[in-house]
């Protein structure tokens, strides 16, 4: 009896969560997949014929998809690089013993706690065409003669979006890296110092390898943030074609054009891309560290 309860009890305890996962995750995933195989435009409610993978083909053939994918990949690269560099740099500063370290830590975390849409709106005022803060500052410093239209050029807009997003995601990366830095035993640095190692060598052969898995966590988080950018783009440039990423394209297709068939196909394509990225990161995280 005891052995039986030992075998069964874990499953009983897992059951509520399992049911919730089925109802709220797996069922919608399955339904979305069935939508993606159908003609499912809500303005034609009587036309819901099975079309196989036609929606997928249509999405992959559309210029809008490839354009938005390019934007997504640019944002992914830019946000990951900016977040990692800024996050690690901030972590290095915060790791120094200081009386105001606690205060600095609290200030550094603030942007992370900000809702993305609020973040986007604040930055919109900063980059506002004509009389935004940045333009006023640059004009005052005499660096420009006429205001820069930050949000009308594709790559300029995407760069602004990347900066805005990195500003929000860097604190998390910094906190994770800080945890990594704090966990390195001081004895390692002392031993290295006795062996004649300088600051750079200690950083290169002790700090960096040991903090690498933590950077990996920060990078993974930044990647997910970068792929899921939505509010910042909407706040900065609305639903314009210029800065749209795959998520905006998905939103437009599904909810604006009410094409749930193509929208669901696009959802699955995005899900596939994200899954590939996830596997890649998880593999790199589990690498052995040598020092």
């Amino acid at each position: 009896m005891h052995r039986f309860s030992q075998k069964i009890l874990p499953y009983i305890l897992l059951l509520p969560m399992g049911l919730l996962m089925v109802a709220l995750v797996y069922y919608p995933i399955a339904v979305t997949f069935s939508y993606s195989l159908r003609e499912m435009k809500l303005t034609r409610p009587n036309d819901t014929a099975f079309v196989g993978f036609e929606n997928y083909v249509s999405v992959l053939k559309s210029q809008d998809f490839w354009y938005s994918l390019q934007n997504t990949l640019f944002l992914l690269a830019a946000v990951v690089i900016l977040t990692t560099l800024c996050g690690f740099f901030v972590a290095m500063i915060l790791s120094k013993e200081h009386r105001l370290a606690g205060l600095f830590l609290a200030i550094a975390i603030l942007p992370w706690a900000m809702p993305p849409i609020v973040n986007g709106i604040i930055w919109r005022f900063i980059f506002f065409p004509g009389y935004g803060f940045i333009n006023k500052l640059l004009l005052m410093l005499g660096l420009i003669d006429t205001p820069v239209d930050w949000l009308s050029n594709r790559w300029l807009l995407l760069s602004v979006v990347a900066v805005v997003t990195a500003w929000r995601s860097a604190p998390f990366c910094a906190i994770v890296c800080l945890a990594g830095l704090k966990s390195i035993p001081k004895e390692l640095y002392e031993a290295a110092k006795i062996d004649g190692s300088g600051s750079f060598h200690s950083f290169r052969y002790i700090t960096l390898p040991l903090v690498f898995p933590f950077i990996g966590i920060g990078t993974t988080s930044a990647s997910i943030t970068a792929i899921n950018i939505f509010d910042e783009i909407v706040a900065l440039s609305g639903f314009s074609d210029v800065g749209k990423n795959v998520l905006i394209q998905n939103y437009l297709t599904t909810f604006s054009f009410l094409d749930f068939g193509k929208g669901s196909a696009l959802t699955y394509i995005i899900m596939g891309l994200t899954a590939v990225l996830g596997v890649f990161y998880l593999r790199s995280l589990n690498r052995e560290v040598e020092f």
Binding site: V31, T32, G278
Partner: peptide
């Protein structure tokens, strides 16, 4: 160790 990441979007 191999892990499979599953990230889902439910539109729904």
């Amino acid at each position: 160790m191999k892990k499979t990441a599953l990230l889902s979007l439910a539109a729904l």
